[in-house]
Structures are given as structure tokens and as C-alpha cells.
């Protein structure tokens, strides 16, 4: 049985069709990339899966349970973690406290949550920043914090929105390594990525969206050679 199943998701904003009958499955242990040019509906899809938007039609199931209609916090507690494209650290809290909020979801003891948070900070390479305020971090560090916070909720499925977006070139390899490390450690990942080089480096399978529709779904090498995918990207380059 698949871990996540997206079936026939349609979402309209006024006259704009952001998602049109989007369907795909993610099996446990996979690392799936979601690609598509700007406005393809990737982020809308993420918001629908995580409960921030309600679809006009279709449903999302996770481990067989229906997510559609649940609130974002309920979705999170069922085991679906996420990061935000527009980074949203808790500015007034320290890095450690940011991650503790995640850890406290499953763990009711503050001391244990603190220890867990420290471990995760170690993993993502932010241990030396634990007591700094989140607002003092660089963009690359904020991306790591965003990931650490989501990991702390111990999700069985993790949705990453533009891990390398807006980060300087030198930080990208480190972030790619981090995503791969998280995947190796046993997480199932669904990753939105704009940068084709990044996605081909990490994803085993790719779902390509264009104008709200799935135009390709398959192994990475096949999708990147797909004519419609190439056209979609080229089309964007020329407009």
C-alpha cells in the first residue's frame, strides 16, 4: 500500500485553475521530486496535502487515513511534516527552542525534547548556533533550521518546499547532502524543487506539473527526457 495517495485534486482560485485532477502515489521509503515551471501548481498542491488549503475536488490519503478536511496541525500530528518555501522561523525564539517546538509534538517532557532538539541540530549542522536567536541566521542556516524543526516532529512523510531556493551556490551541495542523509535515515520525502540539477541529483522519481496538471510521472531519467516536460520548461524560458 502506498504511504501517500493524492487522488483527483482540483483547486481553483477565482478563474485560475491551480491544480487539475492531480493524482499520484508515494510509497514508503521513496524520495519523489515535484517539478514544474513557475505557476505549475506545486506549492498549491503542498498546501492542500498539509491542510492549509481545501481542494475543490479530490482527496488526499496518508497511510489510508483521509487528510482532506483536517486542519494543518492534525495533519502534522498524523505524521506529515513540512517546510515552508518562504522561510518562517520563530524569530523571537532561539534556534534550539525552534526545534524544541517540533520535538514537543510527540514528546511531552521538556527536558527530553531539549535533548532531542540538540541531537537534530547536530545532524543538520547547526549545533553551534543552538542559543542564537533564529532571526540572526543566514538564509542557508534558516533552511537547515526549517528542516530540523520539521524533522523533530518525527514525520513518516516529509514535504520539502524549495530546499535550495534563494540560497547561495556554495551552500547548495551541503543542503543536497543533508536531504540525502535524511532520506537514508529512513524518511520518505516529497520535494518541490525548481532547480533541475538539484532534483536530478536527489530524486529517484519525479512528478512533473504544468499549468496545474500532471504531465509526467516516472523515474528521474525518463521524466527529464520527456518531451512535454522539456517543452514546459523551454516555454517558460521564452516567455
Amino acid at each position: 500500500m502506498s504511504l501517500l495517495s493524492v487522488a483527483g485534486i482540483t483547486k481553483r482560485f477565482g478563474g485560475v485553475l491551480a491544480n487539475r485532477e492531480v493524482s499520484f502515489d508515494v510509497a514508503a521509503g521513496e524520495l519523489v521530486g515535484v517539478i514544474g515551471p513557475n505557476g505549475a501548481g506545486k506549492s498549491t498542491l503542498f498546501e492542500i496535502i498539509t491542510g492549509f488549503y481545501r481542494p475543490d475536488a479530490g482527496e488526499v490519503r496518508f497511510e489510508g487515513k483521509r487528510l482532506t478536511g483536517l486542519s494543518p496541525d492534525q495533519v502534522s500530528r498524523l505524521g506529515v511534516g513540512r517546510t515552508f518555501q518562504k522561510l518562517r522561523p520563530f524569530q523571537g525564539l532561539t534556534v534550539l527552542e525552534n526545534v524544541m517546538v517540533g520535538a514537543l509534538q510527540k514528546c511531552h517532557d521538556v527536558g527530553r525534547a531539549r535533548a532531542e532538539a540538540r541531537e537534530i541540530l547536530e545532524r543538520v549542522g547547526l549545533a553551534d548556533k543552538a542559543d542564537a536567536y533564529a532571526r540572526t541566521l543566514s538564509t542557508g542556516q534558516r533552511k537547515r533550521l526549517e528542516l530540523a524543526r520539521a524533522l523533530a516532529t518525527r514525520p513518516r512523510l516529509l514535504l520539502l518546499d524549495e530546499v535550495t531556493g534563494g540560497v547561495d551556490q556554495r551552500s547548495i551541495p551541503g543542503l543536497i547532502g543533508l536531504v540525502q542523509e535524511v532520506h537514508r535515515a529512513g524518511s520518505t520525502l516529497l520535494v518541490i524543487e525548481h532547480n533541475m540539477r538539484v532534483i536530478t541529483a536527489v530524486a529517484q522519481r519525479i512528478v512533473a506539473l504544468h499549468l496545474g496538471e500532471v504531465i509526467a510521472d516516472g523515474p528521474t531519467e525518463a521524466v527529464t527526457r520527456d518531451r512535454r516536460v522539456i517543452e514546459a520548461y523551454l516555454g517558460q524560458a521564452y516567455t
Binding site: R77, G81, R82, R88, G92, E97, T153
Partner: peptide
């Protein structure tokens, strides 16, 4: 504190 700082982000962490 998380809700105060950013409610959406707090919800995404299951709060």
C-alpha cells in the same frame, strides 16, 4: 510562544 511568533508555522509542527 510558537503560536505567537508564527501561527501557520506552529500548526505545521502540530501545535
Amino acid at each position: 510562544a510558537a503560536v505567537r511568533e508564527d501561527e501557520d508555522a506552529a500548526q505545521a509542527l502540530g501545535v
